[in-house]
Amino acid sequence: MIEPLWEVFVRSRRGLSHTHVGSLHAPDATMALRNARDVYTRRQEGVSIWVVRAADITASSPDEKDEFFDPAGDKVYRHPTFYQVPEGVEHL
């Protein structure tokens, strides 16, 4: 019997997003949360924890990463640095 794998996300303090910190095995979500507390927050590294079954995550494929992210590649005009600001103009 292999316990399912859970991915663990921790919010390190209020105002910040949850960040992936690692994974662990646990039979159910309740145990996964408790184990995550013991494994990943022994020094008050978090104020909130999410656990997600690894099998429930849908991820983009590394094989097609170039095509997948291509559409953004030729749109430099999405960045403010694309634009020329005339001399002397401030707060723009």
Binding site: E3, A26, P27
Partner: peptide
């Protein structure tokens, strides 16, 4: 312990 936890998880599910 592992067996009991798995049985409990199975029952809850």
């Amino acid at each position: 312990v592992r067996e009991a936890a798995a049985a409990y998880a199975g029952k809850q599910a």
